[in-house]
Amino acid sequence: MATQMVKLTFQAPVHFGDGRLSDGEYTCDAATLFSALFIEALKAGCADELLAVAKSGEFSISDAFPYIGERLYIPKPMACVSEHAANSAESGDSRARKANKALKYIPADKLGDFLSGSFDFVGELERFNNGASFLRTKVNLTRSTSEDAEPYHVGGYRFTPECGLFFLVDGAYDVRPLMEQLSYSGIGGKRSSGYGRFTFEIREDVPLRLVDESSFGKWAMLLSSALPREDELTDSLLEGARYHLVRKGGFVQSTSHAPTPRKKRSLCLFASGSVFERCFEGDVFDVNATPGAHPVYRYARAMWMEV
């Protein structure tokens, strides 16, 4: 299967977060990307095809990660694979230890330095400047319950020039038509206010090496937030693994689902950057928790990178 890189250049601020209007993150996970693509596929009448190739593994995507100019950033691996690197992470001055904790992403071309223990945490933290978050105060002028205008806060993130997000697409499914539609609709929250609109390019030169079960080596890192199927979640899967769990829930944003917003079924996923000695595939899970309502899908398939 072919691997492509989709680079997003934003024409407006973005609103990514974890359910709070005041959030101002600068990345999003694969589930957010898939949900946005699936909504566009519903409009285009090809949602069943997209769901089928995603569930079968013929199409997979990573989380969205930052880029600065031509430099790509990947999640900082949650484990060091060499004894020297592990010792180096604990040694050094307090600035280096603080920078290590603060860094969420590292340059993809510096992965070798990170694994060998020669990574410059302080320097890379100082060089990482892709934009700034902001918080705007707005006023709710709806006065059905109160005569006073009610202020509320909206968070966002504005990328600096030559910066944005990229994600990987693996498989034969042509994502370009859906990306064309999505670029006008926008991605993330507050799209009605113009947030999240972008231009994009799809590139074939992908400098990251993906692996699957047939080519899995000693260690591999998740590039997508993922959840094993029930038959994959075994004690042996977790042996030697270093991971972080993220809880995903929220409300269903669909007028055809129920008369009022209903909660999704919550899932705990392994975050991107988690490192395993054994691989799993994951799935696209139905997280609908309302009896009789239509399915609600959360993308949680695994994409692996060799480390």
Results as ranks from 00 to 15, higher is better:
residue 117 G to W: 15
residue 156 G to H: 04
residue 168 L to N: 03
residue 96 A to Y: 08
residue 169 V to P: 00
residue 79 A to Y: 07
residue 55 K to L: 02
residue 144 S to E: 15
residue 167 F to M: 03
residue 101 K to W: 08
residue 76 K to T: 12
residue 95 R to N: 12
residue 172 A to P: 06
residue 85 A to N: 11
residue 146 S to W: 06
residue 55 K to I: 00
residue 131 G to I: 05
residue 148 D to N: 10
residue 60 S to Q: 00
residue 76 K to S: 05
residue 97 R to D: 07
residue 155 G to L: 08
residue 62 S to T: 13
residue 121 F to I: 01
residue 94 S to Y: 04
residue 116 S to A: 15
residue 77 P to M: 03
residue 167 F to W: 03
residue 152 Y to R: 02
residue 99 A to W: 09
residue 80 C to G: 08
residue 131 G to P: 08
residue 65 F to P: 00
residue 91 S to H: 04
residue 123 G to R: 00
residue 73 Y to D: 07
residue 154 V to G: 02
residue 124 E to C: 00
residue 66 P to S: 06
residue 107 P to I: 10
residue 171 G to I: 01
residue 78 M to S: 07
residue 156 G to L: 05
residue 117 G to Y: 15
residue 146 S to Q: 10
residue 68 I to L: 14
residue 112 G to H: 12
residue 90 E to W: 09
residue 139 V to M: 14
residue 118 S to Q: 14
residue 101 K to Y: 10
residue 54 A to S: 09
residue 166 F to Y: 07
residue 153 H to C: 10
residue 136 R to S: 15
residue 91 S to F: 05
residue 170 D to P: 01
residue 70 E to T: 09
residue 142 T to A: 10
residue 94 S to N: 02
residue 96 A to S: 13
residue 100 N to P: 02
residue 153 H to Y: 13
residue 149 A to M: 10
residue 172 A to N: 12
residue 171 G to A: 08
residue 158 R to Q: 10
residue 168 L to W: 01
residue 104 K to M: 03
residue 123 G to A: 02
residue 75 P to F: 11
residue 81 V to H: 11
residue 66 P to L: 04
residue 167 F to P: 04
residue 59 F to D: 03
residue 93 D to P: 00
residue 144 S to G: 15
residue 173 Y to M: 00
residue 53 V to P: 02
residue 112 G to D: 14
residue 57 G to W: 01
residue 169 V to S: 06
residue 100 N to I: 06
residue 116 S to C: 15
residue 85 A to V: 12
residue 113 D to I: 13
residue 65 F to D: 02
residue 151 P to T: 01
residue 119 F to R: 12
residue 92 G to V: 06
residue 175 V to H: 02
residue 174 D to S: 08
residue 168 L to M: 09
residue 136 R to K: 11
residue 129 N to C: 00
residue 85 A to T: 12
residue 174 D to C: 00
residue 104 K to P: 02
residue 154 V to R: 05
residue 157 Y to R: 01
residue 138 K to N: 15
residue 90 E to R: 14
residue 157 Y to D: 01
residue 64 A to V: 09
residue 90 E to Q: 14
residue 130 N to Q: 06
residue 154 V to S: 11
residue 116 S to F: 13
residue 148 D to L: 14
residue 52 A to H: 07
residue 86 A to T: 09
residue 121 F to L: 02
residue 61 I to D: 03
residue 154 V to C: 13
